[in-house]
Design a protein around this nucleic acid. Structure first.
Length: 916
RNA sequence: GAGCGGUUAGCUCAGUUGGUUAGAGCACUUGCUUGACAUGCAAGGGGUCGGUGGUUCAAAUCCACUACCGCUCACCA
């Protein structure tokens, strides 16, 4: 560079706030990103030849606000998005929310009840309008929260499952599946939640063990020839019994098959039938059968052509099918009365405690009743087969792999999907029933006349569709399907799905089904299953336990970077994360470290000139740090590719803190404060280049602090931005991600530098053990074995060693000797520390406790002897010598030699110490 | 009943294809106002890898059995 330009290129020092305070810049930085349009795949900062990288957000429910699970999930999505964006891929993260039918309706119902009204009083239209208002509110909150944690979603593409376009997708799919015979309507036994007032799919029922009872009683034979004893956990259902079943091979009952029994408490008589289903060994071997209220009984009923008696009303009370005295009672009330009546009338035989599994509503935890009703279903078998085949062909990959079992198992055991919900909040089922001809019309568009007879006397199905019936279309409905939009062409299929394991079949498997059915391909290739967030005791975070952590509070307290970095750092593949509030100190401390390192470097720029990188002579310590950086870059890339966020976090943490701050910045002080102007420029420039590259490397994990620092950096010549301009990118967010390169590899230098670190640490350890404060300069002599690989390296970096060990500044502060041994006379007054291939003698004998030093040596010798024994044992074993690889044997031999030397050396020192 | 995961320092977790003295963060001990950082610097102590048996020259790492913890799935009245 021409010296004439020098003055104009002189830098001023740059001030960063002394205190690292994320709120000072996070909001401003996010705004800058948004205004720059960087969140869009068409930002102009991506490479034309690269594949787009697309994520669709798992849409949070509009029921509430984000919890820490969302914090984790979205932080990791942001890490991926930012990484691929910096790699130059057109990158799109589609945000949005889910209308969450039951949950949201429940929330709003509670709200209106608190206001003294009710859903029924308000009427459907007003209630839905109110729900829309609440949903909008929550959508706004959720968006703000995602922005606060730094999510770089493309907000111009935000979607909601009830949007016009997505609703059209829902209709298209419903009607198309109906046309293909995959959607049907029928009167079947479904899971009914009386409290929510709706049917549920099988997957929405959670089984829990309940302490109940097995009630025994009998039914008398009509012909008076005897009786048959049954046992049940649900005696009240006997009011809907339509037969008693026994096993056809059961000798005890063979003669009774075909006979009738009286059904107590009712006026009815029912037959005894033979059915293979009945287990002769369980209970009495005779089963009361209620096809209207038990799935097994339902099957028996089909086989024997039995009547199905529905004893319940939709609200869970007993209905008109039962005798008057039981009508209107709740199930528990009815159970009591039935048992009491059976006792009163002499049918009751006793009860025994019995624990069994009972289905509960996943939303409200009420007991689920099998309930006979008219519902819409999806025939899942054909869809499941496709989804299974796609997985078998390797078209989707789970991280970690073991979740594929969950996926495959669910698909193999697939059952039809009940999709109607007796709710008001959701996609209204697009079916109209005609009062005139009795036919139904299934239509993509709203209709005003019956498609069969043209009558206007039609009414739309009152029910709405299961929320998941819209969620399963999310990866393509958000991109515009069923229209053939540009987005759909460009950005479907997406790249990676980041979600939790509890919705693998609710959502993940179904999305794959829907995509295969309607787009002909899987919606994403990689499925990253996040860890589950728990509290420090390992309990699931929940509202009722009050042990949840609000991600926004974490952001307020520590900053969004701390949230993101900590979660990534702890995200090992398939392990739950235990978190307390203070856990986020991990990220917070690291961000603080970054801030302060940058602050220090930038405050020391006054009068410096940035030397173009190509003109800088890289010396050994520089080659060492670039070697370390190169290895780190590789670790980061492989960690990102394998969704090993913990690896990525640890890699950058170790590099930046341990290598760069603890060693490189420290050693650079020698140059940075030298008298030589050119040397200072050289050092400052290298530090800036390293800082800049570190910011790029760490940006996905700590986007805010790295961007803030990046914005403060002076222009660095030779750094080309993604848009072709020089001196850097307009935002770190679109700067180039570091790539590893072979010419940065310097294993030889790295090995020597490690030796230097070993020497420095050894000296420091000795100082520390004898409490020689850093301010006390010491004099020492280093002897290296002949042929020691780092001998000349030490020679070349004597000043460095001097600085790092706190050695005396005098000419003879450190002396290096390369020979087998040192004259004992020269070691008077020293105490030694022994390393592999070298020993250091510190002349501090009069300052230390000799007895302590003796003990130290004894301990050291004992340790080495043990290791030597192990090595010798190996080398004496013929098996080892014959079968182990030559390399390993050589290594072991070298190790043995080294230990022998060290022990001999240590023994010599010990002797001299004792003799003094 | 079936399947899956976990069991490694006081705590929370890493540990690639089996190969030297098993790592990290936190906590702990000691010493430091060392030209940015006490959210810091330097140094240190602390595990033989749940148990048993096996394969191997060699196992935290592979195999079998077993114990405990957790999760998921499952229609036995």
């Amino acid at each position: 560079m021409a010296t004439g330009e020098a003055d104009t290129a002189r830098l001023k020092s740059i001030e960063l706030e002394k205190r690292f305070n994320p709120p000072d810049f996070e909001g401003r930085i996010y705004e800058m990103w948004q205004e720059g349009g960087y969140f869009s795949p068409e930002s102009g900062y991506s490479d034309a030849d690269k594949e787009p990288f697309i994520i669709v957000i798992p849409p949070p429910n509009v029921t509430g606000v984000l919890h820490l699970g969302h914090g984790l999930n979205n932080s990791l999505q942001d890490v991926l998005i930012r990484y691929y964006r910096m790699l130059g891929h057109p990158t799109l993260w589609v945000p949005g929310t889910d209308h969450a039918g039951i949950a949201t309706q429940n929330v709003v119902e509670r709200m209106v009840r608190a206001q003294g009204t009710s859903r029924e009083q308000m009427g459907r239209e007003a209630f839905v309008a109110e729900t829309e208002r609440v949903a909008l509110d929550h959508k706004t909150t959720i968006r703000r929260q995602l922005q606060k944690i730094g999510a770089s979603c493309d907000w111009s593409r935000e979607r909601f499952t009830l949007d016009e376009g997505l609703s059209r997708a829902v209709r298209e799919v419903f009607v198309a599946l109906y046309e293909r015979g995959l959607v049907y309507r029928g009167n079947y036994l479904v899971n009914w939640c009386a409290s929510c007032g709706t049917a549920l799919s099988d997957d929405e029922v959670e089984h829990a063990e309940v302490q109940g009872a097995l009630y025994h009683y009998f039914y008398p034979l009509v012909d008076g020839s005897g009786r048959i004893e049954v046992a049940t956990t649900r005696p009240e259902t006997m009011l809907g019994d339509t037969c008693v079943a026994v096993n056809p091979n059961d000798e005890r009952y063979k003669h009774l098959v075909g006979k009738e029994v009286e059904l107590p408490l009712t006026e009815r008589t029912i037959p005894i039938v033979a059915d293979d289903y009945v287990d002769m060994t369980f209970g009495t071997g005779a089963v009361k059968v209620t096809p209207g209220h038990d799935p097994n009984d339902y099957q028996i009923g089909l086989r024997h052509n039995l009547e199905r008696v529905n004893i319940l009303n939709p609200d869970g009370t007993l209905g008109d099918a039962v005798p008057k005295r039981y009508r209107g009672l709740s199930v528990p009330e009815a159970r009591k009365r039935v048992v009491a009546d059976l006792q009163g009338q002499g049918y009751f035989l006793g009860r025994e405690d019995y624990t069994h599994q009972v289905g509960h509503c996943y939303r409200c935890d009420s007991v689920i009743e099998p309930f006979l009703s008219e519902q819409w279903f999806v025939r899942m078998q054909p869809l499941a087969e496709k989804a299974l085949a796609a997985w078998e062909r390797g078209e989707v990959l789970f991280y970690p792999r073991r979740w594929e079992n969950t996926y495959a198992h669910w698909l193999r055991e697939i059952r039809d999907w009940c999709i109607s919900r007796q709710l008001w909040w959701g996609h209204r089922i697009p079916v109209w029933y005609c009062a005139a001809c009795g036919e139904m019309s299934v239509s993509r568009a709203d209709i005003t006349a019956c498609e069969h007879c043209g009558s206007a006397e039609i009414t739309q199905d009152e029910d709405v569709l299961d929320t998941w019936f819209s969620s399963w279309l999310w990866p393509f409905s958000t991109l515009g399907w069923p229209d053939e939009t540009e987005d759909l062409k460009r950005y479907f299929p997406t790249s990676t799905l980041v979600t939790a394991y509890d919705i693998i079949f609710f959502w993940v498997a179904r999305m794959i089904m829907a995509s295969l059915e309607f787009l002909g391909e899987v919606p994403f290739r990689d499925i990253y299953i996040t860890s589950l967030v728990r509290d420090k005791q390992g309990r699931k975070m929940s509202k009722s336990l009050g042990n949840g952590i609000d991600p926004l509070e974490v952001v307020d307290e520590y900053g969004a970077d701390a949230l993101k970095f900590t979660l990534a750092f702890l995200s090992t593949l398939g392990q739950d994360i235990l978190l307390g509030h203070d856990t986020f100190a991990i990220g917070s401390k690291f961000a603080n470290k970054i801030w302060n390192a940058a602050r220090y470097l930038l405050m020391n720029l006054d009068g410096r000139r940035v030397v173009p990188f190509d003109e800088i002579e890289l010396r050994e310590p520089d080659r060492w740090i670039y070697h370390r950086l190169n290895r780190t870059v590789e670790r980061v890339h492989s960690g990102m590719r394998g969704y090993r966020f913990d690896e990525v976090g640890h890699a950058v943490y170790e590099f930046f803190w341990n290598d760069f701050c603890d060693w490189y910045i420290e050693l650079s002080k020698l140059s940075l404060y030298s008298d030589d102007e050119a040397e200072r420029d050289r050092a400052a420039s290298l530090l800036l280049y390293l800082l800049e590259e570190s910011m790029r490397l760490m940006h996905p994990l700590l986007p805010f602090v790295t961007e803030e620092i990046y914005q403060k950096l002076p222009a660095l010549p030779g750094r080309e931005a993604r848009d072709g301009s020089t001196g850097g990118a307009p935002g770190l967010i679109v700067a180039r991600f570091p790539e590893s390169s072979a010419d940065r590899e310097a294993p030889d230098v790295a090995g020597k530098f490690a030796a230097l670190q070993e020497l420095v640490t050894a000296v420091r350890t000795l100082r520390s053990e004898f409490t020689l404060p850093p301010s006390m300069k010491v004099r020492f002599l280093v002897r290296t074995d002949p042929g020691y690989h780092a001998a000349e390296f030490f020679e070349r970096h004597l000043e460095l060693i001097r600085m790092l060990t706190g050695a005396d500044d005098a000419e003879d502060g450190i002396e290096l000797v390369h020979s087998e041994a040192v004259d004992h006379s020269r070691l008077k007054g020293s105490v030694a520390v022994v390393g592999a291939g070298f020993e250091a003698h510190l002349f501090v004998r009069e300052l230390i406790d000799v007895e302590a030093a003796v003990q130290r040596f004894e301990k050291e010798i004992a340790k080495h002897r043990k290791a030597l024994q192990r090595a010798e044992a190996k080398l004496n074993s013929s098996g080892f010598l014959e079968k182990a690889g030559a390399e390993i044997v050589t290594k072991e031999q070298g190790r043995k030699r080294e230990l022998e030397i060290q022990i001999r050396t240590l023994e010599g020192h010990l002797e001299r110490l004792r003799g003094s």
